[in-house]
Computed example of a mutant assay.
Amino acid sequence: MTDEGMNLNDLNNNLNAINDDGILQLTKQDVQPEIDFWDSTVVCYVLRTQSLYSVMNGFLRRVWGKYGIDRVFSCDNGVFLVRFRTRDARERASATRRILFNRKLVITKRWQPDLKIREEKVSVVHVWVKLPNLDLKFWGREALMKIAGLIGKPIKTDKITALKKRIAYARIMIEVAVNGEFPEFIEFFDENGNRIKQAVQFEWKPVECHMCKGMGHVEQDFPNQFVKVRKNQPRQQKSVMNQKRWRPMQKPVQGKAHEHVVKPVHETK
């Protein structure tokens, strides 16, 4: 590396890389340094939107800065790469719960050497799912994989589930389709042929609200829906029963029965 850039002046080395068919053949040694460089990187992009680099750079550093971010890179298709200083920092950042940017999900995944960044399309996402009161005999790896497979593609459990430090529910990361099916229950047979009905709780669902264009809830669950409904309703006129009307009332003056004065009063009907 020089002050002007990387020195690539080694023609003989390039010629030696040509195979018998006259086509360049790279080796593992050629790409390993770059694989090592990007190995601590998380790929992320915002579902249903594209954001400016300056905006996302600041946002990602606020969310993940405590883990030690080296650099934030951007691609022209709205994909951002966040390189952490260590692989452990990458793992800790990836283990955080879902991130929302402007009420839209931030998709995150670990960078892989065969990942086609510029061809990334959001069709599936990773969500955390809880299986409350799951029988302890189903907490093994093989059973959890099969049970979680009824919901989507199982990815991993959280650390607490793996160590059995909490047995109220098993928590599993599952890959599901955007706007797919999100069952409240799943059913399967145990080793003795007993039918098991297991509750499923999604910590977040990748569904889109057509009212606010946000992610994670549908129209009937829109938090401010009741406000919009009230705004759209015409104001009701006050009831005639509650209106006051002025009318004169005649009252005799003491000592002068033939004289009358008119005194305004409010009468409620």
Results as ranks from 00 to 15, higher is better:
246 W>E: 11
82 V>Y: 02
33 P>M: 05
120 E>T: 15
250 Q>W: 10
174 I>E: 00
79 V>D: 05
181 E>C: 07
240 V>G: 15
240 V>R: 12
160 I>Y: 11
216 G>I: 01
56 M>K: 00
236 Q>N: 12
175 E>Q: 06
47 L>M: 14
44 C>W: 01
119 E>S: 15
239 S>L: 08
191 E>A: 08
60 L>D: 00
159 K>H: 08
192 N>K: 12
228 K>V: 15
224 N>E: 14
10 D>V: 05
126 H>R: 14
73 F>Q: 11
107 I>T: 07
147 I>Q: 00
46 V>N: 01
234 P>K: 05
233 Q>W: 07
164 K>A: 11
48 R>G: 08
142 E>N: 06
221 D>E: 14
142 E>F: 06
61 R>E: 13
160 I>L: 14
76 D>W: 10
119 E>N: 12
133 N>C: 06
56 M>L: 02
14 N>S: 10
34 E>I: 14
114 D>Q: 15
70 D>A: 14
43 V>D: 03
133 N>W: 07
168 A>K: 14
232 N>Y: 10
176 V>R: 02
262 V>L: 13
4 E>S: 14
15 L>T: 08
115 L>P: 00
128 W>C: 02
60 L>S: 03
136 L>D: 13
96 T>P: 08
238 K>S: 10
10 D>M: 08
42 V>Y: 00
164 K>F: 10
2 T>L: 15
36 D>P: 05
219 E>T: 07
59 F>H: 04
69 I>Q: 00
98 R>E: 12
171 R>Y: 00
188 F>V: 04
213 K>R: 09
48 R>W: 09
8 L>T: 13
150 L>F: 05
50 Q>I: 11
189 F>Y: 09
158 D>Y: 02
228 K>M: 13
199 A>V: 07
197 K>N: 08
122 V>A: 15
148 A>R: 01
16 N>A: 13
251 K>H: 10
161 T>K: 02
173 M>L: 14
249 M>F: 09
17 A>M: 14
189 F>W: 07
260 H>M: 10
209 C>T: 03
91 E>Y: 13
135 D>F: 06
260 H>Q: 13
126 H>W: 13
131 L>T: 03
188 F>T: 02
254 Q>V: 09
